[in-house]
């Protein structure tokens, strides 16, 4: 564990908690993409299957359980909670998320380190995580006016990605044989997807204005 990975995990945790707190306290999920949340639930469910087969640390196991629990809670709130579900922007959140799942599955079947069930699913989760934010970014562009919490959620998620890249650089420099092309490329693609959002986020912050994305 290094400081970059810890900072990445903490911003990731903060992003999910900000979202859960928003949904739980103001009973609204306006501006939140259910498609993205369902993709994250799939990402965690397929990546953390090793919870049953390998043990790394109490921290690792605990965080996995938190991410699984929080992502499925958010999906549950948005789909079934009687007040929250009415605030969901159903008509705007039209991204066909299955068009992301299938290519990622195909890619994981073709490009992986080992052809085993757990390894292919783990690789699939990396590919899917890289693009899972897309429905949320599309929804943000459509609704344009973004409330602070949704903006902070995406900002924190982007921060998590940035810290993980620093973590990989640090590990590459300090640990022998630490070369992981699949993780790195998927992670880099994911981080780049946030670049556009970050540009507008910082502009609105600099000008002290409400975040608005161009149509």
């Amino acid at each position: 564990m290094n400081i970059f990975r810890l900072a990445g995990d903490m911003t990731h945790l903060a992003s999910v908690l900000v979202l859960l707190l928003k949904i739980h306290t103001i009973k609204s999920c306006a501006g939140v993409s259910l498609k993205t949340q369902e993709l994250y639930a799939i990402v965690f469910a397929t990546r953390y299957l090793d919870i049953f087969t390998s043990f790394y640390s109490i921290y690792n196991t605990l965080m996995k359980l938190i991410f699984l629990g929080s992502s499925f809670s958010i999906v549950w709130y948005m789909r079934y909670h009687k007040t929250v579900r009415r605030t969901y922007d159903r008509e705007q959140d039209t991204f066909r998320h299955w068009f992301l799942v299938l290519p990622c599955l195909l890619l994981a079947l073709l490009i992986h380190e080992k052809f085993t069930f757990l390894e292919v699913l783990w690789t699939f989760s990396l590919y899917l995580e890289a693009v899972a934010i897309l429905p949320q970014l599309v929804l943000l562009q459509r609704t344009r006016n973004i409330d602070n919490l949704t903006g902070q959620y995406v900002f924190l998620l982007g921060g998590y990605r940035g810290f993980y890249i620093l973590n990989w650089i640090y590990r590459y420099l300090t640990e022998p044989h630490f070369v992981h092309w699949i993780t790195w490329i998927a992670g880099l693609v994911q981080t780049l997807l946030y670049a556009d959002f970050f540009y507008y986020y910082f502009q609105s912050w600099k000008n002290n204005k409400k975040l608005q994305l161009p149509a």
């Binding site: 090793d50 790394y56 690792n60 965080m63 991410f67 783990w122 640990e175 022998p176 044989h177 993780t183």
Partner: peptide, 10 residues
């Protein structure tokens, strides 16, 4: 021993 894999990450 250190695990030189990203599997120990989240």
């Amino acid at each position: 021993p250190k695990d030189h894999s990203t599997k120990d990450e989240l």
